[in-house]
Design a binder for these strands. Sequence first.
DNA 1: TTAATTTGACCAGA
DNA 2: TCTGGTCAAATTAA
Length: 261
Amino acid sequence: MEEIMTMIFNGINLVKELEFSLSSQELPESDLSNSLGSISTLFGDANERLKSQLAWKNSLAQLEPVRMMDMMMETEPALTQQDHWIRYPVMQTVKGNDDTSRPRHRPRKKDIGGEETVLMAAMGRIEIPPDDNYTWRKYGQKEILGSRFPRAYYRCTHQKLYKCPAKKQVQRLDEDPYTFRVTYRSSHTCHFFATSLTSSAHVHATTPAANVPAVVNLAETMIGNMDSVVPFGELPYFNHHCLVPGDDANCEDTWNYDMSS
DNA sequence: TTAATTTGACCAGA
DNA sequence: TCTGGTCAAATTAA
């Protein structure tokens, strides 16, 4: 983090130098271009490093939320709960729901299948939840009774193309505007992820929590394409076994973390 | 031009 | 009848 702060301060110094040069009108256009390029590169690099750092912490937390929380509390016990969420975005499962009762004309939440609600911290003090490595398309927003913030409704971008039923709702918490309650409904069947198509081929199907894609995607960001590093079969994968095709209610979903198989 | 977002209306369940 | 979830036309962004 210190390195990132140093980069930011260096960028600020460059801006100040540029400002001074402009005010004294002693800067040729070629130097102006170089100066702007340096500033842009410096802030861009700092931003990228920051994003990588946050994504890394986020993905670790998604793998083992409880253990990660314990580890972080051990190392920084003085942090408040809110500071903790802001600094280390953590995904916490709140509840599950597999109610699949009563068919209706228009598919409603109880028809769609599995439901999982997680709490996700904003990436810093901004009003958007962290990326979960899927591409979503917003299809609605509603003011919710008793809530200060509206609820946003998203469906998978690939809904039409691949008939992917995945949906999610995002709601900011009244008590903590920097925390989002994200409710995932139905699993992705599109098998594609926002930024990594190559790695997605290794994942047989997807789950709402999307843990593995996040890790694979992050690893690719850090060390390049996983194809050249991790042989197929050594990645954890998701089994989606249906007795009746299309009948999610009677499917068996399991993660296989056994690297020896 | 295409894709995504916004937003008011509509629908279904409680 | 109220509320939450979805639709779809209009608008905006890329």
